[in-house]
Amino acid sequence: MIEVRNLSKHFGDKKAVDGISFTANDGEILGFLGPNGAGKSTTMNILTGYISSTEGEAIIDGNDILKNPVKAKASIGYLPEQPPLYMDMTVKEYLNFIYDLKKCTLPRNTHIADICRLVKIDNVYKRVIKNLSKGYKQRVGLAQALVGNPNVLILDEPTVGLDPSQIIEIRTLIKKLGRNHTVVLSSHILSEVQAICDKIVVINQGRIVADDTAENLSSSLSGEHKLSVKIDGPSKEVKELIESIPGVKSVTLIAERESYSEFSIESDENTDIRRELFSRMAGRNWYIIELKTSELSLEDIFLRLTMGEKIELKGGKRQ
């Protein structure tokens, strides 16, 4: 479990992290989403004790990282942005070194072999790290974090620089690890955190702009309910019929094809018009070919959130 309270880090005048707080519970994957320079790596470096915070506290499994660093660090596995690999060592030597460094007590050979199998590096076990491909290096970095089976895993952009099939593999692996670890993962790719994480913290310019589950984030922020629908029927009459449904605010004809017309419908927040829409269309023998909600995707939310931030900043400057 990770508890972060009011954490700040200043580099000179620059506030890389500015008063952030969040909690990641056991068995939870928390996604740290933000553009480059948002302060993700800085936060992770603080959580792992690599750098110190200017203010605030980070508590890992009950141990404060500043007051009780050795104990706190013992329950963390960290994969930094750039995997900390000794290029002149073989994978075997390196993982054994990490094993000693972390003062592991698990049975050495079986533990290391298990990890290698899990991250699929057993076929390069005897190779020198320098000669491995980027994907393999990243996996050795992940293996290093897993040594000692720490409770908390902190992974800084674990899929950067991998090819699509490797990305999918690593994501699946992280999801699997998330079942019995507390995982914090950073990314600047929305679909990635959406695919992996239970909980998402959106960060921009060192501040948290949103902190919720992925679903809650999109529903709480979307505000208006929008539907997109394709109907086989005379477009003008269909439009009128839709407009007559209580709760509908506006209907726009988007496209007219030979076999169907596409509309975008905006309705009241509190009314779900989908059932009514169906029965009315059925009553007239017009066919709904496709019906989908166009709730805001996290992409839109992200844009909104960060835009909001920027507008605020500009406003501040003008005063």
Binding site: N45, T48, G49, Y50, V70, K71, K73, A74, I76, Y78, P80, Q82, P84, L85, Y86, M87, I98, L101, K102, K103, Q144
Partner: peptide
């Protein structure tokens, strides 16, 4: 330079 110190400094050693 190689950022390997990150692995030493975040390990449970003083």
């Amino acid at each position: 330079k190689n950022k390997t110190e990150q692995c030493l400094l975040t390990a449970p050693v003083t």
